[in-house]
Design a protein around this nucleic acid. Structure first.
Lengths: 185, 185
DNA sequence: GCGTATACAATACGAACGTATTGTGTCGTT
DNA sequence: AACGACACAATACGTTCGTATTGTATACGC
């Protein structure tokens, strides 16, 4: 089975990054976790940086898929709340959030990675802004979206790094959204 | 000169972590940057994890010193704003912020480190809560401080990872503080 | 049916890593 | 003057790393 191995490798990478971050992440470790040979990893991802790139695009597409599922929700407010539910990690082990955090930090030192991260998060902010506008009003500026996404990022960090209670954190995020909407009307 | 070398090593470590994160940080690299021998590094920090611990306590104490200088400010509101000015990185290269971020992320996988990080950030939240109460009112809950610090963390991340304009980010932080105080009165 | 591309596996190589070991000079103490 | 503690320096050891090389089995076009 050909692309089975590729998927297994990507999955193993996400698991390992989520468990131990980028330090300690080795080609050998990925191969071992995926139960494939080192050669298999090298075949699909010729270098380590290509391997990491694949990991990020994988989590990005997985996240995008989840976000896409929200499109079916009609009411902008409940869709906004559902989006927040996705962005705030469900628990301390949430792989998507953990991998995201590692890539965000990595982008502070890696120019190539930063470019994609900047675009990704800019579009995320745009999403938030549109949803805010649709949900409550029309006077939302870019600043509002920047504040909200930064709040969500910081709350996410507090869950992952400090083990803050996810439910409590979620309530805070939702409270801020309601406050933003109330102010506008 | 004996403790000259120790200081040079710590300074070199902070520089290197700030520049390239934990990956790529090696004993040899630190020794080279500090212009001392590998043996010197080993003498003062027998293992690498002890070396990293020293780096974190160093930035913590440097940050604490800066925060201590704020004590002289009488007015709680201006002191709060000054604290925010310290927490939001001045620019993309701000070493304290960058090292902090690396340690925060590291604490998502390192239990020992997390314990100290949790305590550090809990006391930071307490500071914020007290300042908020002194500046504007008395009905501030722990939730308020949690939201504000998360916002500051997220904004910091946006500066470091996305290269958001520090001034703009600072304005957002200050705007939120004013809003919080206005609401209470 | 035969060459070619694909999808791996196995192994090997050189570099970089953390750390152990040992040597050397400079002290303050006795 | 002798000596032990300290602050390094130099080097060596074993491991792990990314990657290059080579081999092999399977699928497929012609």
């Amino acid at each position: 089975m050909s692309h089975d191995a590729k998927e297994k490798i990507v999955t193993a990478m996400i698991e390992l990054i989520s468990e131990q971050g980028f330090e300690g992440l080795s080609v050998r470790g990925v191969a071992s976790r995926a139960s494939v040979s080192i050669g298999a990893v090298q075949h699909h991802f010729p270098t380590k940086v290509r391997m990491l790139e694949a990991a990020m695009t994988a989590v990005a597409s997985r996240a995008a898929q989840r976000f896409g599922e929200l499109e079916t929700i009609e009411d902008p407010l409940t869709r906004l709340q559902a989006l927040i539910d996705l962005l705030i990690p469900q628990d301390t082990a949430d792989p998507i959030a953990r991998v995201w955090l590692n890539f965000a930090v990595r982008s502070t030192v890696d120019t190539n990675l930063r470019n994609t991260y900047v675009k990704l998060w800019a579009s995320m902010r745009n999403q938030l802004r549109l949803l805010l506008a649709a949900a409550g009003g029309h006077k939302y500026t870019d600043e509002t979206a920047l504040e909200l996404l930064a709040l969500l990022d910081g709350l996410t960090l507090s869950v992952l790094a400090e083990h803050q209670d996810p439910d409590r954190v979620r309530r805070i995020a939702n409270a801020r959204v309601e406050e933003l909407l109330r102010h506008d009307s």
